[in-house]
Design a protein around this nucleic acid. Structure first.
Length: 783
DNA sequence: ATGTCGCTCGTTTTT
DNA sequence: CGAGCGACAT
């Protein structure tokens, strides 16, 4: 059994998996089999009886990672997953807080505020306390509060610097008080409150310290200061007369890309020191990418300082060269990308194995336009998530109020939704009453008088009614009842555009049903293993797991996403677009060397997503906020090894010759495009050796052959240039598909630009004359 | 209570 | 350019 477990591991992986009961740091490079090691480690501990399932605490950053760990573990051995403490920091802290809510000073049914609830709460507080939002934007305060909590700092711990911070601090103080009264916690509070609960309650602390003999942490480089403090406390580090529990931390300092939200790479070095780790175990064999891709990644990241140090290698060959393409503008860039995707498709590649990456979301637009135009299916990661939809949040707000009437965020959201004639004035009164009497908005409704009181009573009656049924009705029935009783159902039924919202509300019920079975609730049981009600758990999960916004499994589509979103994923073919100074590395990161290094790590992450083919593109000109901006290529391109690249457009050297001086070859194309220029540059830097050989086509080494541009390459580039210039692609004979009229063939074209008109013979709807500028939005080219 | 105008701002973001 | 928001009018 156990030999089977480690049979497929390499030496380093084996060393990590079979460690005795000690703390360790596993430096796991991209594609080095990190997840396998983590799972094998747990399996190893259990099989060798080093601990029981109940003695494990394994924490990840995303629900997806936690789920993957559970599934793969279950595939290895039969396990009762609910007994296992595997989850995200927030999920596990939520679990602990629910179990010990009294010790933490919270009601059993405490609400969890997401970012928008939190922002709303801050705005409400500012209004109630006459703090002008123009001077101090609520977003700034939200940022400030979250930054403090990420470091484990309470308002009472802060001595403000100057007036600026004094005001921020004042809101932080009131905010703490208010959300505590509401029986609510925000994301940061979830962890801070758990940390403090353990810190201040010795019996509970000791219980968990005795229990969790093995603590495993994934993506350790992404932990913030508070999370590290929490881990130390849980491990019993610094506890007198106690040997700390074994912490198995897996991470990669080169993939730390979340400093902007509090992640502290420094935790890795602190961990080595605090837990006397000695040397980390390095997983450096890469099983994902081909040689050239890996070389590029290594070469690039070597420009960063303060690394723990690591060099990825692979047994697979060099593979294809990395293609570099300079486009005139973003449309041309998109045309190039889609053109190559079409080639992949012709060669039978699965669309899901193609990813287009970019630095910022706004860049997806040009790409989407081109993909749509050429009829290539795609999905964009990071859209609106299920539990973030307005109608879902509305329904949940009713349920939240039924659970916890003090939840002011939920109250504000739905007190007048659907409209019940409760206007801004009434709400303002309620806010004042609540503030003056230190009570919830719901309680404040009791103090209202006159006509407003009657209108508000309609609302509170609804809440009380749902509340009274929350234990007697099963969860799915309760949700259905709530949707109906709240008036939301009628509201969306009356709305001619409400059909989709109604569907989503129905899906909410089915997601609750799925949740129940997944959580292992017995048919009629009211509680799970932790004695929590289905409703409480469902509401927690709705906030903590907003639902994944990834491509639906089985749907064949090109994957578009930011580089941040791509972390942890891999694809056969990857396009990294927008490689321009100012965009990537981003403007705002140029000033601080630290931030530039994070940008470089971001590039490192992007490169290492690719298994086989990697394309790097940039555009000389790009619309930014509607204005054209002229860019130079990203400095990161100069940090890649020349002999791993193939320039499809004339190679551009940077103004400084540093890249030559440091021994990076300028391998590239010196054929018919302005070859004179290139040759003169060649002479200057004495790197002409193989290029000359190439030109003469004698003794061309195999790897150098690839560097030349073929005729096909050139034709393709020209056609891209052409097609993006006249760019619409609507010609006589083009087959189009129109949303309304279906498929048709273009018979005639008149006019130009804005006035271009096309005459289309539709199969089923006859001949139509359409103004292209308008019809284009509802139409795509079939071929 | 609802719609519309005009202003501002624009990196990445999971929980 | 275009989303989102607040001020203002209806």
């Amino acid at each position: 059994m156990s030999s089977d477990l480690i049979a497929n591991l390499n030496e380093q992986q084996k060393a990590a998996v079979t460690l005795p009961e000690v703390s360790s740091l596993i430096l796991a490079g991209a594609g080095s089999g990190k997840t396998s090691v983590l799972i094998s480690r747990i399996a190893f501990l259990l099989e060798h009886r080093l601990c029981t399932p109940a003695e494990l605490f394994a924490v990840t950053f995303t629900n997806k990672a936690a789920r993957e760990m559970m599934t793969r573990l279950q595939a290895k051995m039969p396990l009762n997953t609910r007994a296992l403490w595997v989850g995200t920091f927030h999920g596990l802290c939520n679990r602990m807080l629910r179990l010990h809510h009294e010790a933490a000073g919270l009601p059993a049914a405490f609400a969890i505020l997401d970012m928008s609830d939190q922002l709303g709460a801050i705005k409400r507080i500012m209004k109630a306390n006459n703090i002008n939002e123009e001077v101090l934007p609520a977003r700034k305060i939200q940022n400030y509060i979250n930054k403090q909590k990420e470091e484990g700092i309470r308002a009472k711990d802060i001595k403000p610097y100057g007036f600026g911070e004094r005001d921020l601090l004042r809101v932080y103080e009131i905010y703490e008080k208010v959300i505590n009264r509401e029986g609510a916690v925000d994301f940061g509070e979830l962890i801070l409150r758990t940390y403090e609960m353990l810190l201040n309650n010795e019996p509970i602390r000791q219980h968990y310290q005795d229990r969790f003999k093995f603590i495993l942490v994934d993506e350790f480089q992404d932990t913030n200061k508070l999370q590290y403090k929490f881990l130390k406390l849980l491990a019993g580090h610094g506890e007198e007369g106690r040997k700390p529990n074994a912490v198995f931390a897996v991470g990669d300092d080169d993939q730390s890309i979340y400093a902007f939200r509090g992640a502290n790479v420094g935790n890795m070095k602190d961990f080595i020191r605090d837990f006397a780790i000695g040397e980390p175990i390095r997983l450096e064999q890469n099983y994902r990418s081909q040689g050239n891709i890996l070389d590029a990644a290594n070469y690039l990241i070597s420009n960063n300082s303060d690394r723990l140090g690591k060099n990825l290698w692979t047994q697979s060959g060099k593979g294809d060269l990395i293609r570099v393409f300079k486009a005139g503008d973003e449309a041309e860039e998109a045309a190039f990308v889609v053109d190559n995707i079409k080639d992949f498709v012709r060669n039978g590649e699965d669309l899901r194995e193609i990813a287009i990456l970019y630095r910022s979301n706004a860049q997806s637009r040009a790409l989407e336009t081109e993909l749509t135009r050429r009829g290539v299916k795609y999905t964009v990661y990071g859209g609106l998530r299920f539990f973030d939809r307005a109608e879902i949040k509305n329904a949940l707000a009713y349920l939240r109020l039924a659970e916890n009437t003090a939840d002011d965020s939920a109250f504000m959201r739905v007190v007048n939704l659907p409209a019940r004639g409760i206007g801004a004035k009434t709400v303002e009164n309620l806010i004042d009453l609540a503030r003056d009497n230190q009570i919830s908005l719901f309680e404040a409704t009791q103090l209202l008088s006159g006509a407003a009181a009657n209108k508000v009573r309609v609302f509170t009656d609804i809440i009380n009614d749902i509340r009274s049924k929350r234990f007697s009705l099963p969860l799915t029935a309760l949700i259905n009842y709530t949707v109906q009783r709240s008036g939301l159902k009628a509201l969306y039924e009356a709305d001619e555009n409400g059909a989709e919202r109604l569907e989503n509300l129905e899906e909410l019920t089915s997601s609750a049903a799925a949740f129940l079975s997944q959580e292992g609730f017995e048919e009629d049981s009211k509680e799970n293993v932790d004695n929590l009600s289905p409703l409480t758990l469902f509401l927690s999960q709705a906030t903590l797991e907003a639902g994944d916004n990834q491509a639906k499994a089985g749907e064949e589509a090109v994957q578009l996403m930011t580089i941040h979103a791509s972390k942890g994923l891999e694809f056969n073919n990857v396009f990294i677009t927008g490689l321009e100074n100012g965009l990537f590395p981003h403007d705002k990161c140029l000033a601080e060397p630290k931030e530039l290094q994070e940008e470089r790590r971001l590039m490192y992450v992007a490169i290492t997503r690719a298994r086989k083919k990697l394309y790097l593109t940039y555009a000389a000109q790009r619309l930014l906020h509607g204005m054209p901006r002229y860019n130079v290529k990203s400095s990161f391109l100069d940090e890649l090894p020349g002999d791993a690249l193939k320039w499809l457009t004339p190679k551009e050297d940077s103004d400084s010759y540093s890249s030559f001086g440091s021994g990076r070859s300028g391998g590239g194309y010196y054929g018919s495009y302005n070859s004179k220029n290139s040759w003169s540059e060649d002479k200057r830097n004495s790197y002409s050796g193989y290029k000359k050989t190439y030109r003469n086509n004698e003794n061309v080494p195999e790897w150098a052959k690839n560097i030349g541009i073929t005729k096909e390459d050139k034709n393709k580039i020209n056609s891209i240039r052409q097609s993006s210039k006249n760019s619409d692609g609507y010609n006589i004979g083009t087959i189009v598909f129109h949303e309304k009229f279906g498929e048709g063939k273009i018979k005639n074209i008149e006019g130009q630009g804005e006035n271009k008109k096309i005459e289309v013979a539709f199969k089923t709807s006859g001949v139509k004359n359409l103004l292209l500028a308008i019809a284009q939005k509802k139409m795509r080219i079939v071929r």
